[in-house]
C-alpha cells in the first residue's frame, strides 16, 4: 500500500498552516505524509481548489505564486479531516477488537 494521496486534501492541509507557493507545498506535503506530488498533479489540485473558492492566490513574490486557504476551504478541510478521523477511529477499533 502506498502513501496517502488525495492531492486536493493534501494541498488544503498544507495551506492550513499558512500561505505557500508550489515548491513549499510539495516539501510540506512530503514532510507531512511522505507523498511527493508531481508538478502536474499539484497544479491540477490547485486549479480545482481555486475554482471551487477553497484557496486563493496572493500577490506573486518574484516568480513564485503563493496561495492561501479561504474560510470556506478551512470549513471543507475540517469536515473532510473529521470524516477521516471517524473512519480511522472505527478502523483502529475493529483492529483492537479482533
Amino acid at each position: 500500500m502506498g502513501h496517502y494521496s488525495d492531492p486536493p486534501l493534501l494541498v488544503l492541509a498544507s495551506l492550513a498552516s499558512g500561505p505557500k507557493h508550489g515548491h513549499a507545498m510539495i516539501e510540506d506535503i512530503a514532510g507531512m505524509c511522505g507523498t511527493r506530488l508531481g508538478p502536474g498533479t499539484l497544479y491540477g489540485a490547485i486549479a480545482r481548489l481555486e475554482q471551487q473558492g477553497w484557496i486563493m492566490p496572493l500577490p506573486p513574490e518574484e516568480r513564485r505564486q503563493p496561495y492561501r486557504i479561504t474560510a470556506e476551504g478551512l470549513r471543507v478541510l475540517r469536515a473532510k479531516l473529521t470524516t477521516l478521523q471517524h473512519f480511522a477511529k472505527a478502523g483502529l477499533g475493529r483492529l483492537e477488537a479482533s
Partner: peptide
C-alpha cells in the same frame, strides 16, 4: 506553472 516548472 511555467515558472514553477523552470525553478523546480
Amino acid at each position: 506553472f511555467e515558472a514553477f516548472l523552470a525553478t523546480g
